[in-house]
């Protein structure tokens, strides 16, 4: 019984130490995790707020209006004819492994950094055609990023809902990161 009690005490001590270590490591991260959880949509909204607060977004009228959603054929023609930007909202590692030709990485899980990296291309014209995709029809990343871009004043953003799985199933060309 005495051994059991000392074991439990030790476990408690190790657990407390682990929590302290975890909290300490967190303080040294570039973006520390807040103590209260924010879900994906809330985090993206926070990122948008921070970007908006740095600048005022203005949206001139679009020249060519894209539909809300693109089918595989429409998206394929859009890509082949290079009609506008294509954004890949999957985590960057997946983008590196393979993406739609010409697609740029704007991962939902690191929106702020990705947006800053693409700022020049994106903000050159807020009415330019942009098509967004993620993994497949059930992933929510592209929808969340579209909402964020809408909030930032981008007025011509469409979704390719089939996503990467639809694209690869159709044996369409792929590109990998250099």
């Amino acid at each position: 019984m005495k051994i059991l009690r000392s074991d439990l005490m030790l476990i408690w001590l190790v657990a407390t130490t682990a929590l302290c270590v975890g909290l300490l490591i967190n303080q040294f991260r570039d973006t520390p995790l807040p103590l209260v959880y924010r879900d994906k949509a809330e985090r993206l909204q926070d990122s948008v707020q921070r970007i908006v607060s740095k600048e005022s977004a203005s949206a001139p009228a679009p020249i060519v209006q894209l539909p809300e959603k693109l089918t595989l054929e429409e998206f394929s023609s859009y890509v082949e004819n290079k009609r506008g930007l294509v954004l890949d909202t999957r985590p960057e590692i997946f983008h590196r492994l393979g993406h739609v030709p010409g697609a740029l990485s704007l991962p939902r899980d690191d929106f702020e950094t990705g947006y800053a990296a693409l700022k020049g291309k994106l903000e050159a014209d807020r009415s330019q055609a942009i098509v967004i995709y993620c993994s497949n029809a059930s992933c929510e990343d592209s929808g969340l990023v579209k909402k964020s871009l809408d909030a930032l004043g981008f007025s011509n953003v469409a979704l390719y809902e089939g996503g990467w799985s639809d694209w690869t199933n159709a044996k369409k060309p792929e590109e990998t990161a250099q």
Binding site: V14, T17, A18, L19, G22, L33, L35, Y37, R38, D39
Partner: peptide, 28 residues
């Protein structure tokens, strides 16, 4: 933390604490 959230077991106030504390606990 996102993975733990999918289990819908813990309140948001505890999710990140567990996500920060559990991995070092497993390592130790």
């Amino acid at each position: 933390a996102d993975s733990i959230a999918t289990f819908k077991m813990l309140p948001p106030q505890l999710l990140n604490i567990v996500a920060l504390g559990l991995p070092p606990f497993e390592i130790l």
